[in-house]
Computed example of a mutant assay.
Amino acid sequence: MSGLPDRRETLPQSIEEIADTIGVRLALKLVQTFGGQEVKFPVKPHDRHPVILALGKEDGLRICDYMGGQRFSVPHCRPRRNAKADIERLEAQGLTRGQIARRLGLTERWVRKMANDPPPDHPDLFSE
């Protein structure tokens, strides 16, 4: 799992808490498979659900048993970078924010934040 932390102590807190319950192996598999994406985990997934297909039935059911009914922004566990120009370029090409997140290795939440932040020279309408 290249690019991912190799020690439990270096995991982001949200994944560390998941690793405490479902194990480090499955937590890292979750990051490797869905890193940078927001995933809605079903309570009772069917055999063709994307989580089951991506993680395998046993691991998929295990994570859904723990996370079922929740939406979770899976961290990518890569160092942060300033990607505002890349995000703007890819949005102009018509990519969705989810596609941009996957392409740049960022979370959808970070892509939304960067895309919605005004440029540094943009005047603040509420400042005096």
Results as ranks from 00 to 15, higher is better:
residue 2 S to F: 07
residue 3 G to K: 14
residue 5 P to F: 14
residue 6 D to Q: 15
residue 7 R to W: 08
residue 11 L to I: 00
residue 11 L to W: 01
residue 13 Q to W: 09
residue 13 Q to C: 07
residue 16 E to D: 03
residue 18 I to R: 02
residue 22 I to W: 01
residue 24 V to M: 08
residue 24 V to Y: 15
residue 25 R to P: 04
residue 25 R to S: 11
residue 29 K to Q: 15
residue 31 V to Y: 09
residue 31 V to R: 12
residue 33 T to G: 05
residue 33 T to A: 14
residue 33 T to E: 14
residue 33 T to M: 13
residue 37 Q to L: 15
residue 38 E to M: 15
residue 47 D to P: 06
residue 48 R to N: 13
residue 52 I to M: 07
residue 53 L to F: 00
residue 53 L to E: 08
residue 54 A to N: 12
residue 55 L to E: 01
residue 55 L to D: 04
residue 56 G to Y: 12
residue 57 K to M: 04
residue 58 E to R: 12
residue 60 G to D: 02
residue 60 G to A: 04
residue 61 L to N: 12
residue 62 R to H: 03
residue 62 R to M: 13
residue 64 C to W: 00
residue 65 D to S: 10
residue 65 D to I: 04
residue 67 M to E: 07
residue 71 R to S: 14
residue 72 F to S: 00
residue 75 P to N: 01
residue 75 P to W: 01
residue 78 R to W: 15
residue 79 P to A: 09
residue 80 R to V: 03
residue 82 N to F: 10
residue 84 K to N: 06
residue 89 R to T: 14
residue 90 L to I: 07
residue 92 A to G: 11
residue 94 G to V: 10
residue 97 R to L: 01
residue 97 R to W: 03
residue 100 I to L: 09
residue 101 A to T: 06
residue 105 G to A: 09
residue 108 E to C: 00
residue 108 E to G: 08
residue 111 V to S: 05
residue 111 V to C: 01
residue 112 R to T: 06
residue 114 M to V: 03
residue 114 M to G: 05
residue 115 A to Y: 03
residue 115 A to L: 06
residue 116 N to W: 05
residue 116 N to K: 05
residue 120 P to S: 04
residue 120 P to L: 05
residue 121 D to W: 10
residue 122 H to Y: 11
residue 122 H to V: 06
residue 123 P to E: 13
residue 124 D to A: 03
residue 125 L to M: 10
residue 125 L to S: 15
residue 125 L to H: 06
residue 127 S to D: 14
